[in-house]
Simulated assay, not measured.
Amino acid sequence: MLALNGGPKVRTQPFPRWPEYDETEHLALARALQQGEWGRHGGKEVQAFEREFAELHQAPAALAVTNGSHALELALELAGIEPGDEVIVPAYTFVATSTAVQRRGGVPVPVDVTADTFCLDPAALDDAVTDRTRAVIPVHIGGHVADMDAITAWGEARGVTVIQDAAQAHGATWRGKGLGTLGSIATFSFQSTKVITAGEGGALLLPDEDTYENAWVRHNCGRTRELHLATASSNFRVSELTAALLRAQLARFADQNARRAARHTELAAALGEIPGIRLQGRDPRCTSTPHYMTTFVLDQDELGGLDRDTVALALLMEGIPAFGSHRPLHRTDAFWTGATRDIRPEELAEYCPNAERVGRDGVLIPHQALLGTRQEIDDIVTAVAKVLAELPSDGIAAAV
């Protein structure tokens, strides 16, 4: 019997905590405090973190900012996005991708994702472009890098700026190289669930020093290093305390990434043997990923219309951290509170069938589940198999 209906749980022990921390973080915060300078002006932690984060991604420069949403907004500001400009985004992504466009006065234009990687489909770009298109934001969803070869070539041919939303893709590589080598700005989040975190925070990778300097001025209230108020912008500066935490967390990243990769290989192989689920695919040119989320989609042809939310709830009751995937942008109320094209949600749904499927039937397992032992993997697989086998007869009635 399912735990949802009062049966025994598959797992009663907690999964590994997130974030991982110890005396290293205490010492980092003490180091920042003892500087006597807690903002980036006069301190050393922010600058050191920027160097280290840029090095991880083989980028010419990085800029630390307040959060991932602000990183996107600043990237759009650097791209010169103005009210009425259109920015192509994947329909399947967290709503911050489109909200950042709308907060600049721009118009986000959702397009479909691929059926396997759940990343923006380059084949959908030509149908979405207009003479108002100024940028495209591929999202490296779950840490899987979008087809940057095709998207970059498409943008260069049309004079459209490419901005990578890498909020979930810390340390990912494309053709063996870091995201900072791809010639475009990439934005990151350090929010609580991310694989590098300080609770909040964000960063941009910049393709050259001139772009870094422009971004630095704009994140500093539009004020130059000589204190000249050069342009209208905002305050996106991050504190020395946040940067000190991020440096400590960054030092853990390589070990954590190796552990996640090993466990994910085991999890993917085992889940792949369970009828009725389809795992997120990975472009072979994406040579490494942090496995921010393990995502699988319920195959309704095999499962006969099983409700995704009930599946996620049943897994939680079995002691497994599992959640429903992001809703497509056009299925959120937030998307329609800003500027959009004159189109109805159902029309967008017709254009974006893959995003609809993942948003309706996708289940997410967070990365900290991969930081334990083989036992955690076995428990996840056992619970998924149990829920899918028993829920049609045992769980649906209980959930009504």
Rank of each mutant, 00 (worst) to 15 (best):
A243S: 15
E350W: 05
Q47R: 15
A28F: 09
V95A: 08
A167F: 01
L182I: 13
A100E: 05
T12C: 10
T231I: 13
G39P: 00
A71V: 07
R285S: 10
D299H: 03
S325D: 14
P328H: 08
V101P: 03
S288R: 14
E346I: 04
L364I: 07
A254M: 02
Q300K: 05
E390L: 13
D116K: 10
T340Y: 06
I137D: 08
F49W: 15
E213G: 02
V160W: 08
T117A: 09
A30N: 11
A248G: 12
L316C: 12
E73G: 04
E318N: 09
R260I: 07
A314Y: 06
M293P: 00
A349D: 15
N5S: 15
E376N: 13
L72F: 03
T130P: 05
S189D: 03
G42C: 08
K177G: 09
W18Q: 08
Y21T: 14
N235Q: 07
L2Y: 10
S184P: 00
E240G: 10
R103H: 11
G39A: 09
A123Q: 13
T117H: 07
P122T: 03
K194V: 01
L120P: 02
A230Y: 09
G68S: 06
H228R: 15
A254N: 12
F323N: 05
I141M: 08
V10L: 03
A123T: 11
R31P: 00
L229R: 13
V139E: 01
A79R: 10
L27C: 06
D147L: 01
I320G: 02
G281I: 02
A169T: 09
A75K: 05
F253Q: 09
D255R: 15
A186V: 03
H264P: 00
L205A: 06
I163M: 04
A334M: 10
G183N: 05
P275G: 10
D283G: 03
R51H: 13
I163F: 02
V87H: 04
L370T: 02
E273S: 11
A215E: 05
N257G: 09
A243K: 06
L329Q: 06
A124V: 04
A150C: 01
A215D: 05
F53V: 12
A399P: 04
P60A: 10
V160T: 08
L303S: 05
G68Y: 07
A150T: 11
R247N: 10
Q168N: 12
G183K: 06
V65F: 07
W216V: 02
E356L: 12
R285W: 00
L315V: 04
E37K: 14
R278Q: 11
T97C: 14
V95D: 11
V358F: 11
A251E: 11
A169L: 00
V238F: 03
L306W: 04
L227T: 07
K386I: 04
E346N: 11
A244Y: 05
A54K: 12
G395Y: 01
